[in-house]
Design a protein around this nucleic acid. Structure first.
Lengths: 262, 262
DNA sequence: GTTTTTCGAG
DNA sequence: CTCGAAAAAC
C-alpha cells in the first residue's frame, strides 16, 4: 500500500462509532461530522433500513455513504468525504442480519462490522456469535490489503478491557472462546489492535451501560476496536476514544474510536 | 343565576383545551396559565392517572384542580383560580373511561367533557359514541343551571366546521347521527354554541391533524365547543380560538377555545 | 435502568 | 405527527 495515504499533505482520520440508531441521533452525528471532520466514519447499529437512512442530510454535510441497513436492528454504514468503491455486504452468505460492510477508500480496504452480542453463554446467540467470527476470519482472507477493520466487536480482548475483571470472568463479551476468536483474527491476518498498541493502560473503555451511572463511574468495556494492517499501524500518529460523544442528553451507549494517520 | 358573574369588577375567562397528554405538555400548560390567566380551564385527554397528574406544579401556579384521570387514555380535569365545589365524574354509570367532569364555579355548573371519537361508522366505537351522547343528554337534565358545557365533542356540527365538506360528507365526526346528537344537546337544554354565535364565518377550526402540515394549510375541524345557557351567552363579550397554542414545537393537535364574560 | 423499537390510538 | 405502553436489547 506504499503511498496509499499520501494523497494529501495533511493526515487523515478514520473513526468507528456504534451510534445506536442513526435516526434517533442524527443531530449528534451531524455535529460530530462538522466538529471532527473525519475522512471515514464507520457506523454500527443504524437500526433502520436503507430507505430510512438519512442519506440526504449526510450528503448535505459533505459525506458519501455506503449503507447496509436492516429493519429495527443492526445495520452498518461507511461515511466518507471521498467516494467509496467496491462496496461489499456481509460475509458472502445469506445471513439475514446486516452486520458488515466493506469498501475501498484510497486503496485501503475498510471493513465496518457489528459483531453479534451473544447474550449468554448458553444461548443460541452465543453459538451464532462464534460461528460469525469463524466466518469473518475466513472471509477476511479474501479481502485485498491493506486492511482497516473496525467496529463493535462485542469482545473485550483482555481483562484490562473490563472495569471489573472478576465480575466479567467468563461472561459473554469476555469469555475465552470469544477472546480466542478475536485473537485469531489478529494472528491470521497480521492485524494490530491499534488502540491497545498506543495505550497500554487499563480501563480505557468504549462502551458504558446506560444504567446506574456506569459512564460517570467509568464502569465500561473496550469492545469497539480498530484492527489494522502493519503498514497502516506504522503510519498511525494518534488513536483515542471520543468520550465527549458519550456525554450530554441521549447519547449512544458507545463512544467513537478514532485514529489519525500521517 | 343573576349576579353569578358579578363577584369581580373585571370580566372572567373560561377555556377548554384538549391538551393531548398533560405530562408531555406541562410546560405549555404552565405557560398558558401564566400568559392567559384563565379563571377556569377545562382540560381533556390528560392521558394520566390522578396520581400522575401534576397537581403540585399547578398549585404552585395558583390553580386548584378537580381531576378525573385514567391510565394511558382519556382523562379530564377542571383547573380554576378559585376552589371548585360539587365535583362529579362521568354520567352516573360505571363507564371505565374517564370522559367527563363537572364542578360548580361561582354558581355556574361547569362541565368538561371528552366525547368518544367513534373511529369509523362501522366500528363498535361509533355505537359507543352515540350511546354516550344519549346518556350525556339525559344526564345534563340533572345538572343545576346555568350551564357551561365545554370540551372536545368530536363532532363538527356543520359543513362549515370542516375544511372540506365533500371529503367529510358522512364521515365520523361529521355524520348525520352525530350532528343530530349534538343538535339535540343544544335543543333540549337550550344551550348556545358560543363560538358559532359570535363567528358565522366558516373554516374556523380547533383541531388539525399532526400529519401533512394540516395546521399550516388550515385543514382542520371545529370539534371543541362551548355550549352555554342563554343567560351566560348574553354576558359573553368575546370568544375565540387560541391558534398560537397550536404552533411551535410539540403542540397538542387541538387549540384552546376561550370565552370572556362581563 | 435506559433507550429503542413496534404498536394502537387519534 | 405525537403519545403511552410494551417488549427487546444491552
Amino acid at each position: 500500500m506504499s503511498g496509499a495515504l499520501h494523497g494529501k499533505a495533511r493526515g487523515v482520520k478514520l473513526v468507528t462509532w456504534n451510534i445506536n440508531s442513526v435516526r434517533a441521533r442524527l443531530d449528534r452525528l451531524l455535529d460530530y461530522l462538522q466538529t471532527r471532520a473525519p475522512d471515514v466514519l464507520c457506523l454500527q447499529e443504524l437500526k433502520c433500513t436503507d430507505e430510512q437512512f438519512p442519506a440526504l442530510e449526510l450528503q448535505a454535510a459533505g459525506y458519501h455513504a455506503a449503507v447496509f441497513g436492516q429493519k429495527s436492528y443492526n445495520g452498518v454504514a461507511i461515511l466518507s468525504k471521498e467516494p467509496l468503491t467496491e462496496v461489499a455486504r456481509n460475509l458472502g452468505d445469506d445471513d439475514e442480519q446486516s452486520r458488515l460492510i466493506a469498501a475501498t477508500w484510497r486503496g485501503i480496504r475498510v471493513v465496518g462490522l457489528y459483531a453479534p452480542n451473544g447474550q449468554s453463554l448458553a444461548s443460541p446467540a452465543y453459538r451464532y456469535k462464534l460461528d460469525w467470527y469463524a466466518k469473518l476470519n475466513r472471509w477476511l482472507a479474501s479481502q485485498p490489503g491493506p486492511l482497516f477493520v473496525c467496529g463493535d466487536f462485542n469482545v473485550a480482548p483482555e481483562d484490562a478491557d473490563t472495569w471489573d475483571p472478576a465480575l466479567w470472568q467468563g461472561q459473554t463479551l469476555a469469555s475465552a472462546p470469544e477472546r480466542e476468536a478475536f485473537a485469531e483474527l489478529k494472528a491470521r491476518h497480521g492485524l494490530v489492535d491499534l488502540f491497545r498498541e498506543k495505550h497500554p493502560e487499563p480501563a480505557r473503555f468504549t462502551w458504558w451501560d446506560y444504567r446506574a451511572g456506569a459512564f460517570h463511574k467509568n464502569q465500561g468495556l473496550r469492545i469497539d476496536h480498530l484492527l489494522v494492517s502493519p503498514e497502516l499501524a506504522a503510519r498511525c500518529t494518534a488513536v483515542d476514544v471520543d468520550r465527549e460523544a458519550r456525554k450530554g442528553k441521549l447519547p449512544s451507549d458507545h463512544a467513537p474510536v478514532w485514529a489519525e494517520f500521517a
